[in-house]
């Protein structure tokens, strides 16, 4: 249960801090902000990678992932990587276009 408390704490603190920071982002940066946070939400790709790691399984001897699990896990990685790389790349492109 300690772990759950820790996780909730991390969720709460990060939410509050990001809320405070993001409230002050000017309107002109809203589109890059959205593609930027979009890229961050691709952290699920880390979760997808963990699917390929037997260590996450609670039982001592994790069975090898089945073909279906591998397929779905790979699909998750493809989607996550698309979101991740694409999100950072397009944000970089957009923010680079702004000229004073």
């Amino acid at each position: 249960m300690n772990e759950i408390a820790l996780m909730l704490g991390i969720f709460a603190v990060t939410s509050v801090v990001s809320y405070a920071l993001i409230s002050r982002v000017p309107q002109r940066l809203h589109t890059p902000l959205m593609s930027f946070t979009n890229a961050i939400s691709a952290v699920t790709v880390l979760g997808a990678l963990l699917l390929f790691s037997p260590a996450t399984s609670a039982v001592g001897f994790a069975p090898r992932p089945t073909a279906i699990e591998i397929g779905l896990g790979a699909a998750a990685i493809v989607l996550g990587a698309f979101n991740l790389v694409g999100g950072f790349a397009v944000t970089d492109r957009m923010t680079g276009m702004f000229k004073r």
Binding site: M7, I10, F11, A12, T14, S15, S18, T37, N38, I40, S41, V43, T44, L46, G47
Partner: peptide, 8 residues
């Protein structure tokens, strides 16, 4: 994942 999700 939790922290990043909270930010987004």
């Amino acid at each position: 994942l939790i922290a990043a999700g909270a930010m987004v």
